[in-house]
Design a protein around this nucleic acid. Sequence first.
DNA 1: CCCTGATTCGC
DNA 2: GCGAATCAGG
Length: 155
Amino acid sequence: MPRSTSWTDDRIEILTQLWRDGRSASAIARELGGVTRNAVIGKVHRLGLSGRATPARPGTRRPRAPKAERPAARSRRMPVAKPWPVVVEPVPLAGTSDVASIGPHMCRWPIGDPRADSFALCGRAAVRGAYCAPHGAIAYRPTAPDHLLRLAGLR
DNA sequence: CCCTGATTCGC
DNA sequence: GCGAATCAGG
């Protein structure tokens, strides 16, 4: 028994039969064992078995470029779905008002842990709804364009 | 990414 | 003759 798998007559016959059956090269290689699909394809060609009954060979093989590396085709396309800009403004580190002293036109943005004594509300002039400009920028984030929300199943 | 066969060429 | 590497595609 040959320890290196070789193309013995019987293996060639199996190969021929399976190939005519339309089995793929890799399937044949697995069936035979000890050979790769490349080996099978190579043998098929050497045997002159290549074109099958109805091969349907659309593309003709390229003569193989001498040695050039592929230029990695540049495609110009629109930049896709960059995150829309989120404005980050400086935010006051500490609040100046507590819930009792907060007025109607003062920023109600909570600062700190509500359970802590240091808890406060921002208290700056409210210019966007209940909040000052920087807190309003956080509270009223721009939403995604409608079509994107639809794509995401959020509408 | 998986897969297909085709081709080249050093061994 | 052999088949890995590499190719063009599906």
